[in-house]
């Protein structure tokens, strides 16, 4: 049984311009101890998908009737996330069994309350600890993520922490309630490479130790290659390709995935030209008909790709690609 199972997730927002589709027919599973990387450009719907798992999207959000998100914590009855009605029932998915780490740690801590107080507060809400137990546990967690002198840091405010330390405190806070699923939304994007390497190691250790599942959102394929087990590539609200890290990065099946990899500056070949994916991501207000990627795709065939919506196909080696030419690309790669 997977930890979280998302089926046919479609999210629309009601706006003055009408209903805008942000996420369409997205399905994925995360097992305990597994890291799923979710990759895509800004505006592809990564964060909206992640927030749906905790029901954090705004009041104008419309979830499709067919969509289901099932949280299956081992040993407990499965929770149907989208059918939760009342705020007070959402405890388990908001900080209980599911925790989230945001990109900008400075914006996620209250500036006028000490870091320690914030950690204790959520422990008092989500666990049965007493105040002194919670304090002890919070200091332990700060120590666990490698913050020196945790007892002193516990009394400090977020602005007294450096960037990397703030992100680690954020992780300590997210993990202190022992969540089963961690959602990490671009957790290393604002950090230097050296600090990024420390945070990635820390997250891998924690998966090994606590056996939790992680949904890791990033646009950095290098970070994905070093952390995730599986990858899902998202474009304009759709999953265009899913598979294991090796499949997707070694033999990308979708032209968009290939475009992302070609655009990446690689240290192993300094003379390789950087090839951008041509054009910009279209506005969700006018989503292209047919394949959403056809406006920027080098392989797009007029009359075909702008009319037929490609369904996800499973290639012989197990990766799933939503492209009308997926089989052709795959057989050509195989021959080469």
């Amino acid at each position: 049984m997977s930890l979280i199972s998302v089926q046919d997730l479609t999210i629309r927002f009601a706006t003055d311009e009408g209903l805008i589709t942000a996420v369409e027919d997205v399905s994925f599973d995360i097992a305990p101890g597994e890291i799923l990387g979710l990759v895509g450009e800004s505006g592809s719907g990564k964060s909206v998908t992640a927030k749906a798992l905790m029901r954090l999207n705004g009041g104008n959000t419309r979830y499709d009737e067919r969509s289901t998100i099932t949280l299956g914590v081992p040993g407990e009855a499965p929770v149907e996330v989208l059918s939760l009605k009342r705020e007070r029932d959402m405890g388990p998915i908001r900080g209980g069994a599911v925790s989230m780490i945001f990109q900008e740690p400075m914006a996620s801590f209250a500036p006028a309350i000490t870091v320690g107080q914030q950690m204790v507060e959520q422990l008092l809400i989500h666990t049965k600890m007493t105040k002194s137990q919670a304090r002890k546990h919070a200091i332990e967690m700060l120590d666990r993520v490698g913050i020196p002198d945790p007892a002193r840091r516990f009394e400090q405010y977020a602005f007294e922490f450096s960037g990397g330390m703030r992100q680690r405190a954020m992780i300590a806070m997210a993990l202190s309630t022992s969540p089963k699923l961690l959602i990490a939304d671009e957790p290393t994007t604002a950090l230097d490479v050296t600090i990024q390497a420390q945070v990635i190691d820390l997250m891998k250790d924690l998966v090994r130790e606590f056996g939790m599942g992680i949904l890791f959102i990033t646009h950095d394929l290098g970070v994905i290659a070093q952390t995730a087990d599986k990858v899902a590539v998202m474009y304009l609200g759709k999953l265009v390709e899913t598979g294991t890290v090796r499949q997707v990065i070694r033999t990308p099946g979708h032209p968009y995935t290939r475009g992302l990899i070609d655009a990446l500056p690689k240290l192993s070949d300094l003379d390789a030209p950087l090839t951008p994916v041509p054009g910009d991501i279209p506005s969700p207000l006018n989503r292209p008909a047919g394949c959403v990627f056809h406006t920027r795709c080098p392989l797009a065939k007029p009359g075909l790709c702008d009319a037929v919506v490609p369904q996800a196909e499973t290639l012989p080696d197990g990766q799933s690609v939503a492209c009308l030419f997926a089989q052709d690309i795959y057989s050509k790669e195989g021959a080469a």
Binding site: V193, T194, Q196, A197, I200, D201, D220, L221, G222, V223, A225, Q226, V245, R246, I249, R250, I261, L264, K266, L267
Partner: peptide, 17 residues
């Protein structure tokens, strides 16, 4: 150290940062 901290695109690259 800076160079070795860059995450490699190769999932089988086990070089420790």
């Amino acid at each position: 150290a800076l160079l070795s901290a860059i995450p490699s695109l190769d999932p089988d690259d086990t070089r420790e940062a």
